[in-house]
Every structure is written in C-alpha cells, then in structure tokens.
Design a protein around this nucleic acid. Structure first.
Length: 480
RNA sequence: GGCGGGUUGGCGGAGAGGUUACGCAGCGGAUUGCAAAUCCGUGAAGACCGGUUCGAUUCCGGUACCCGCCUCCA
C-alpha cells in the first residue's frame, strides 16, 4: 500500500499517515462562511485538499474515505448583509432574507468550486442544522468545568485547559502581553472566548438554557466534526490564518468535551495566496473572486493548475503572466491526452503526491509523460489531478480547422461565427504578400494579433490561428 | 513585542548530501519576405556568515530581507 506522508502542523514534522480506521479514513476542512462569493484565496485550500481527498480515495478506496466540509451559515456578516438588503427595501423578514442569502451563496460556491474541478465532499453540513449539538457540547463543557455562563454569554475558560496554545505555539500569557484581545467585564480571563452569545429580537436566535441566542464562531466546527466524524479522526485542514484562534479553540472545545479522544491526529495548513506579490485586499484593489476570473475567460482548469503549481506549504503568488503561461501548457497536455483511449495512473505520480502533496513535482512527471507521448499515462495523470474529466477535451482547449482552398483557419468551436471575418483578413494579408507590400502585410498581421488572430504561412496554406490568444470580437470587427 | 512561513538561474518552480530538475523566456541552427509553429543544439542558480562532512544549494546555528497570524480573512 502506498505510504502517505504529510506535514503535521501539530508536530512540525512530516509523518506517515496511519489511519485510525483504514476502512473509514476521515478528513475535515473548514468551509466558507456563506455571506459572499468565494475569492481566489478561498479556493486554494479547496483545491489543495481536494487533491488529498483524491489521493486517499485512490489509496484506501472511494467508499473508505469520509470528507466533511462545512458551511457556516450563522454569522454576523451574514446578518449584516441581510440587514443591508432589508434597509435597501427588500421584501420579506430578516430571517427569510438571511436564508435567501445563504442559499444563494452556497449555490455560487458549488458552481465555482465545481468549475475548479473540486469533488463534492461526502458531507457538507450547515451550522444551523447542528445548533442542538452545539448546545449539548456547550452544556458538556460547563458540566466539566471548562466553561461558564455570564450575562447571557457562555465563555470557554482557557485557563482550565493547560494545553491551550499548543497548536499555534503560543502561551496564554504571551498573548495577553500582546494585549490585542477584546476585554469584556464578564470574562474571567481576557483570552476566554465566546461559545454562545445572546441575540436581540431582530437577529437570528435559538432557545437555549442561557436564553435566546446564537453560537460563537468556533463551536460549529467542533460540533459538526464530532457528529459526522466522531471525537477522533484523521486529518483536519484549513488555511494557516485559521490556526489561531479558530483551530486552537476547536481543539480546546473538543478535547475538553472528550478528554479520552485525540480529536484530529494530523493538522494541515496551507500558506496564504498573494496577488502580484501583494496580499489580496479590497483596499489594494487586487481583490477578486473565482467567478471574476472565470468570467474573464480564465478556464477553471487553468486556475486549478496554477494553484497546484506551488507547494501548499509555501506562500503562492497569483500573477496574470503565470495564468497565461500555464494555460498554454495545459492546453498542449489536454490536446495530447484527449487522443488516449484509456487512462492509466502511474506509481511515480502517486508516490510524488503521497509525499506531502507535492503537486508541483507532479507537474514535472506529467510533463515527462507528455514529452514521451505516453498518452494513456498523461490522461490518467490529468484526470487524477482533477484537470481533465474522462478524457474529454474542454472546449477552451479544443480547436477546429477549416480549409478554404489555400487558406486555413484554426479556432475554438465557439468562435465559428467569426470565420468569415477572419477569412477576409487572411485574404487581405495574402494579397499584400503577393504584391510584396510587406509593410502593409506586417501592419495587418500585428493588428490581427491584437484582435487575437495569429497569421502565418505553412508549406500548403496561409493560416489564421486564434486558439493561443483571446479573440477580441470588437477589434476583429474593426479590421474588416 | 510574541508566533509561524519564505529567500534556488531573466521569470516561475521541484527533488536529492556527491550524478541534467522541469517549464517559460533568451541565444545558435534548420525553416520563413519577415515572422509564427515545430525540430535540433545551448548558456544560466541556490540571500549572507559560520559549523558538521572527504564533499552542502540540500543537515545545524546565526544575520539580513520579504510575507502572514496574534483584529470571527482560507
């Protein structure tokens, strides 16, 4: 059996994965808070850990892996978004608007992540469907002396859990010295965090032993992983920014409710994504969603390919140049692979991925398969990596070739309607060349390239090719 | 201030204690009116300072710089 080695953030070491139960390998990924479209940074853990999911399914069998990724659909930002819509005159109760908003966002999320080739997890629980379990967990924490109620809130008592801070390498005292903690009169310790908080009448709330209220941020992941994976499971993953406080607090909650369990054996964290060398932020103006990229014409497979180009443990930089380069390379691979009748998965590909998800290294293996024209292996690799589905060439990578006497046009199938326009330009270019008006010919060629059409000659034909460039219909029209 | 990550050739980006990463770009050649594509060939690296070692870009320590987290942002 393939040995999978993963870097465990808990121990800072690469460890051999030894599942608690090989017949049911269990992983949990912190999912989105559903108040808005997923941005590109949200996509990195989804794609990276989708590769892990695929690897586990390959090694242990698809029916022996359980993958849980939650939707956090109770949150102040969701409330704020719904409230803003209500104030803007939207009809319906606030509760209905919230439901509408979260439903809509989950739909977007699925569409966007599907486009990136991410498999749907086994379970996608919504926090609002696990309020009962959260309340029960909080009651358990109070009963065991790890939490206390105060002024309608319930707080976790960090001093009651000696290992608090172990995952992120902090001590409670150090963090208080940093002094960037919310001080509230009802807290016993400034680091104590909220498990339950009261809701006013105009906010979503649930009845509880502490009055009408709603859960704190971290408890939902503890409750849902417990309900769906049990008190001990194999892998818990997420972005490095969640390591503290979110994951630290999850550990505290879960370990204190189930002292006999070990919660997650392996913790995995992906490093952050940057855009053109800078942190992605709305204020810098380099903030964009997955949908923005897709709408701009960057294929989902290409986004995925770029994300897999850097090891998950390193900061990764998204640049437009990288996306273009990778699109050209992936197109060549896909076209070659689409000629394969079958797919085969090679051991060296699996071994490379099994080595702490070395997806960048896997790209080299795929490139070797491409160079050696091992088409079945190439197709198998691309399918395994989620870059191709059943050997089918995606439309963006496809091309048709139309021949008109001595002219040939190569373009994507969806650009068929522009064939007459392209042919006109091609003929004009040929005319210039026959008359040896090379300056005019070169000018036209440059302008055509601007419009996304490349002109060239082959031994048989004068050719126009639009497949390596983004066709710009407006500029094309202007050239006619 | 505390904690964590990074630093490889023009750019992107891996593995391995000693043998070519690879891709893109570049350069030379074939080809072309010029190009493009393709094919053949080719130069180029390991932030800095120490240590371990027969030998380190790879292990250890330190320095510098960059980035992130400590503010319910993956």
């Amino acid at each position: 059996m393939t040995e999978i080695r993963l870097t465990n953030s808990k121990t800072h070491r690469k460890e051999v994965l030894q599942p608690l139960d090989p017949a049911n390998v269990r992983m949990y990924l912190c999912g989105p808070t559903v108040y808005d479209r997923a941005h590109l940074g949200n996509a990195r853990p989804v794609v990276v850990f989708d590769v892990l999911y695929r690897l586990l399914r390959h090694v242990y069998g698809p029916e022996h892996v359980t993958y849980v990724r939650n939707f956090t659909d109770v949150d102040d930002k969701i409330n704020a978004a719904a409230l803003a819509r209500k104030e803007a005159g939207a009809a319906g109760t606030l509760e209905a608007l919230i439901r509408e908003r979260t439903e809509e966002t989950i739909g977007w999320y699925h569409a966007d992540m599907d486009a990136l080739g991410a498999l749907r997890p086994t379970h996608e629980p919504r926090a609002t469907e696990y309020i009962g379990q959260m309340v029960a967990m909080i009651e358990g924490l109070i009963a065991r002396g790890h939490a206390y109620a105060a002024e309608g809130h319930v707080l976790f008592d960090v001093r009651s859990y000696p290992d608090y801070g172990a995952l992120s390498g902090r001590s409670v005292d150090d963090m208080i010295a940093g002094a960037r903690v919310e001080v509230a009169p009802y807290k016993r310790d400034p680091m104590d965090f909220v498990l339950w908080k009261p809701s006013s009448d105009d906010l979503p709330g649930w009845e509880s032993p502490w009055g009408r209220g709603r859960p704190g941020w971290h408890i939902e992941c503890s409750a849902m992983s417990d309900a769906l994976l049990g008190p001990s499971f194999d892998i818990h993953a997420g972005g490095i920014d969640l390591q503290f406080p979110h994951h630290e607090n999850e550990i505290a909650q879960s370990m204190c409710v189930h002292p006999e369990a070990e919660f997650a054996k392996v913790w995995m964290h992906n490093e952050m994504l940057q855009v053109e060398g800078k942190k992605m932020s709305k204020s810098l103006g380099n903030f964009f969603t997955v949908r923005d990229l897709l709408d701009k014409g960057v294929p989902g497979e290409v986004i995925r390919f770029v994300l897999l180009g850097t090891h998950y443990s390193k900061p990764m930089d998204w640049t437009a140049e990288k996306a273009e380069e990778d699109e050209a390379q992936l197109r060549r691979w896909l076209r070659a692979a689409s000629n394969a009748k079958r797919s085969a998965i090679t051991d060296d590909l699996i071994a490379t991925i099994a080595n702490d998800l070395n997806t960048a290294g896997a790209r080299e293996i795929v490139n070797q398969q491409f160079q050696a024209l091992e088409l079945e292996n190439l197709r198998g690799s691309l399918e395994f990596l989620g870059l191709m589905r059943e050997g089918i060439l995606p439309e963006w990578a496809d091309s048709i070739r139309e021949v008109y006497e001595l002219n040939a046009i190569v373009c994507q199938p969806r650009h068929r309607e522009y064939l007459p326009a392209i042919l006109k330009i091609l003929e004009r270019w040929k005319e210039h060349r026959l008359r040896k008006e090379f300056r005019l010919a070169d000018e036209l060629k440059a302008a055509a390239l601007e419009a996304g059409v490349e002109l060239r000659v082959t031994p048989q034909y004068a050719e126009a090719d639009t497949t390596s460039h983004r066709l710009n219909p407006a500029k094309l029209e202007a050239l006619k």
